[in-house]
């Protein structure tokens, strides 16, 4: 696997770029305390709305806070929210989908109709409703995102399981006397999880965007948390001072694009038709 990823990196420069961008953000978020020159919420009203300079690379905001430091720290929230959402939604959705697909029949019908109920709502509106009802906080926003995101994974997993369960090795396992659940856990899920993984990498970018959208609308963590979406929304009031919204916006853009590149690359790797090329 690692060898083929290295191979992929050599041949697919977009994938490499994606990896590089994401790695940068992850390292920046982990080592924010060492990289950021100022505290993310330290105010200095005497230097508010200063344009980018050597002291303040990305300028300062309405409260004289250093935007560079805020962007660096902000990665923590966006990455955390994105990863946790994808992880939880992926796990819940996959298990749900696998059970539905494997058992089939009435159980499948009921389970899938339930998940389609959630899918039939516009996802952003649904997430906003959940968030507004629970009150806005980082945890509630992630919860809302998970609720909205898991059915997509469930559908994908179910369709994969439907094909996988017809394979001979499944039948063989069953013939050897393995129980229903043992077959599901040891044979079907491990053989279906690949496509979910690819979807998860692509989805990471979407979830970060969605999280930023929600906090842009004031439904994320409370200020003065240095959250990218919220920083963009602060900057909207100062449209002639591009750096206030511009730099956090750029951060969201690169993070979303980066994880999409990785997802695309991985899909190419997994696709049997394209795999021969590597």
């Amino acid at each position: 696997m690692i060898r083929s990823i290295i191979k992929l990196m050599k041949s697919n420069y977009l994938f490499t770029l994606g990896c590089f961008i994401c790695l940068c953000w992850i390292l920046a978020a982990i080592f924010a305390d060492f990289i950021a020159p100022y505290g993310p919420i330290t105010q200095d009203l005497s230097i508010r709305l200063n344009s980018p300079s050597l002291e303040h690379l990305f300028g300062t905001d309405n409260f004289g806070r250093d935007i560079f430091s805020r962007v660096i720290y902000g990665g923590r929230y966006s990455l955390l929210a994105g990863c946790v959402t994808v992880l939880l939604a992926g796990t819940i959705g996959s298990i749900y989908g696998a059970i539905a697909g494997y058992l089939g029949g009435v159980v499948d019908d009921i389970m899938m109709r339930l998940s389609e109920m959630i899918l039939s709502f516009p996802s952003l509106i649904l997430a906003m409703c959940i968030n507004a009802a629970l009150g806005s906080s980082l945890f509630n926003t992630m919860f809302a995102l998970v609720i909205v995101a898991w059915p997509t994974y469930a559908r994908l997993m179910r369709s994969v399981v439907l094909t996988v369960k017809e394979n001979e090795y499944v039948e063989a396992a069953r013939a050897l006397g393995a129980s229903k659940w043992r077959v599901l856990i040891t044979e079907i899920i491990p053989n279906s999880v690949g496509s979910v993984l690819i979807m998860a990498t692509t989805d990471l970018g979407n979830q970060i965007l969605m999280f930023s959208t929600l906090s842009f609308l004031g439904l994320g963590s409370a200020p003065p948390t240095p959250e990218w979406g919220m920083m963009v929304s602060d900057g909207v009031n100062y449209f002639n001072k591009f750096w206030v919204a511009g730099f956090p916006g750029l951060a969201i853009l690169t993070m979303a694009v980066g994880s999409n590149f990785i997802g695309d690359g991985l899909r190419d790797l997994m696709d049997p038709k394209l795999r021969k090329e590597f």
Binding site: I41, Q43, F63, G135, A222, P223, P224
Partner: peptide, 17 residues
């Protein structure tokens, strides 16, 4: 946000909800 910063000077930790 200003009040939060000011009160932190006298060890009052304000949590904006």
């Amino acid at each position: 946000q200003i009040v939060k910063e000011d009160l932190s000077e006298i060890n009052i930790n304000v949590n904006i909800v």
